[in-house]
Simulated scan of single mutants.
Amino acid sequence: MHAQRAWPVNLADHETLARAHLTPEADAYFNGGAADEITMAANRQAWAAIPLWPRVLRLRAAPCLKTPLLGRTWPSPVLVAPMAQQGWLHPDAERATALAASALGAGMVLSMQANTPLEHIAQDVAQEPGRGPLWFQLYHLGNRGHTLALAQRAAEAGYEALVLTVDAPIHGVRDRERRHPGHPPRALAQPHMPTPASGAEGLDALLRQAATWEDVVWLQSRSPLPLLLKGILHPADARTACELGVAGVIVSNHGGRVLDTAPSTATALPLVADAVAGRAAVLVDGGLRRGTDILKALALGAHGVLVGRPVLHGLAHAGAQGAAHVLRLLQDELMAAMALCGLADIAAIDRACLQPQ
């Protein structure tokens, strides 16, 4: 008789199991941050430092996680963040992650640097009635024709929104990756990336092809899908995005992988939410490791959250089942936290859930 598998009890356990499966190069790529990794650590610490303020004697039924976002109601406020090169972690790559998200009612933002064609992911999950949002991430790499062609492909395949990442025109200074230099296996496809241009790849060359607000205006005017901007930390940038009519902003510091000592996302979120003032959707990522973190994010003004590295940890050691288990833990913990704070549904969450600082 086979012994039943003992699953991890929290996301930290998933991370420990994942690291046993990773080469030093892969570990540095997926788990490392910029420079001294101060921002990466601050992302986690900032959520932990916010105290919840529970209420009692208010509920007689389990909380409901149904979440309105971009004009539709979804089963959960949780989405999987766009993350590159998942084929380096597991042979099923993004297909496993998408199936895990769909099974748990969570959303999926497919990375432009995915190893799986966007059409294959849509074929797997777009028709599933209980899934969450299906969005596609874009980088603007100086080629408007390629950007618009990808946007059209995503729309035709059944994606519901585009997520333009705006905070990484160049790579961050990543000490951990420099100590363990390595690249994804050459056999991994890059079906959405343009053919690299010949010539210099220095700072000037990269910045010449970086996106500007003019490119956002251009894409917004031609996009077949609602457009969100990912990588907003400053309230002035949030206000500009709203003035241009984007559908949403995602408060993100790229998981602490670009500019070290940038603010934590928990610190930036309420400032951005106040600047948006209901004119667009607000989401957040970065350092979310507990259901209590998700509750705090929603209380600070987010309409949804994106979870990154923990999903990859589950994928790395247990494929689709591992990624699904990570999402299950987060959603179960969120429901428990809501129940203990006397919150019946997502609409009941506001800043009154947090103890004043």
Rank of each mutant, 00 (worst) to 15 (best):
A205I: 12
G132S: 11
L141Q: 14
E243P: 00
L288R: 08
A320W: 01
K66L: 08
A320S: 15
A122V: 12
I232H: 06
G248C: 08
T39W: 11
T67E: 09
L330G: 03
R257V: 03
L59P: 08
W88M: 09
A297V: 03
L148E: 15
G172I: 04
L227H: 10
A299E: 09
T267A: 13
D27A: 15
E94W: 06
A96G: 15
W218M: 08
L334W: 03
A46M: 01
A205M: 09
D285A: 05
L138F: 01
A114L: 05
R289W: 13
D204S: 14
H2Q: 11
R95H: 09
P181S: 09
P77N: 14
D293Y: 11
L343E: 10
L79K: 02
A20D: 13
Q357M: 08
H180G: 03
W74F: 10
P185A: 14
A42V: 01
G256M: 05
G314K: 07
A347L: 03
D332L: 05
F30H: 09
L17T: 06
A189L: 13
Q209D: 03
A49M: 07
L52Q: 06
A266C: 07
A93S: 14
V163N: 03
Q355N: 06
P68C: 12
L148K: 02
L244E: 01
R174H: 11
P226K: 00
G256R: 12
Q321N: 13
L327P: 00
P310T: 03
A316P: 12
V305L: 10
W88S: 12
A157E: 05
G32T: 08
G71F: 10
A281H: 01
G301W: 06
